[in-house]
């Protein structure tokens, strides 16, 4: 399958390893990845902060960039959720944006959905001999409804031991501008989440959203916990020949 990668602005700028892991993983599975260079940002931050018009402009640009794609992979749960759940609220009913979004949205996937639903794979041939715990993230859990998919993918990874995370469904406290506007509450939530993560004894905390991982990882680092955070793509891209560094 030919898959168009919308890497997202945060991954592009701060977490390029995730994008590279996605490319490696999908090419290994025999698929073609394209990266339309006109892409920028889904507009989530603007939308969530109340800047609807800016978000609308970015939505128009996203739709224009990806309208021809067979499948669009968005390796960030909250950005995929933005596109699927909030873009439909951005255009007036019956407007061109509204119609184009309705047409494109069903082809927009998060990584776990792409693999399990669109490509029908669970065992991606990955090898990752470490203990891992998984944080489901709010958008992955409640908006995309990823459910068991990420766990199924992780369980199929050779060498990987999955540890259950206490209070997994609870928000990590990132919340975009919330982390700045209500920094104390945000970090109180982050510290509680980091504590649950540390309690699992896992070496790696995995999620499908680098924003949440940046937040929890920032706390874990500050606590000198030694727990490393990794996007699901990086674990799934890891093989015996080319193991991911942790």
């Amino acid at each position: 399958m030919r898959i168009a990668l919308f890497v997202t602005c945060v991954n592009d700028t701060v977490f390029p390893d995730t994008g590279r892991a996605v490319v490696r993983l999908l090419e290994r599975l025999g698929h073609e990845v394209v990266f339309p260079e006109a892409q920028t940002c889904c507009g989530q931050m603007h939308y969530n902060t109340g800047y609807r018009r800016e978000a609308q402009r970015l939505a128009v640009s996203f739709v224009k960039t990806f309208s021809d794609a067979d499948a669009v992979l968005v390796p960030s749960g909250s950005c995929a959720a933005m596109i699927r759940d909030n873009y439909p609220r951005l255009g007036e009913t019956g407007s061109p944006l509204d119609r184009e979004v309705a047409e494109l949205a069903p082809r927009v996937y998060d990584l776990a959905e792409l693999l399990v639903d669109a490509l029908g794979v669970v065992d991606v041939g990955a090898y990752f001999p470490h203990t891992v715990t998984y944080h489901p993230t709010c958008h992955g859990l409640r908006v995309l409804g990823l459910g068991e998919r990420p766990y199924t993918l992780l369980r199929a990874v050779r060498g990987l031991e999955l540890r259950e995370l206490d209070g997994a469904t609870e928000c990590c406290g990132f919340g975009g501008t919330f982390a700045m506007k209500n920094a104390e509450v945000s970090s109180a939530m982050g510290w509680d989440k980091a504590r649950s993560v540390a309690t699992t004894g896992a070496e790696v905390l995995c999620a499908v959203d680098n924003s949440c991982l940046m937040h929890i990882g920032g706390v874990l680092n500050r606590q000198r916990s030694g727990v490393r955070v990794m996007h699901l793509a990086e674990i799934l891209a890891s093989t015996e020949e080319e193991p991911a560094r942790i």
Partner: peptide, 17 residues
């Protein structure tokens, strides 16, 4: 507000793009 309680990630030299 961020860095009081959390470390910032390291900015990579080269973007994905």
């Amino acid at each position: 507000a961020w860095t009081d309680t959390r470390d910032l990630p390291e900015i990579p030299e080269r973007s994905f793009r």
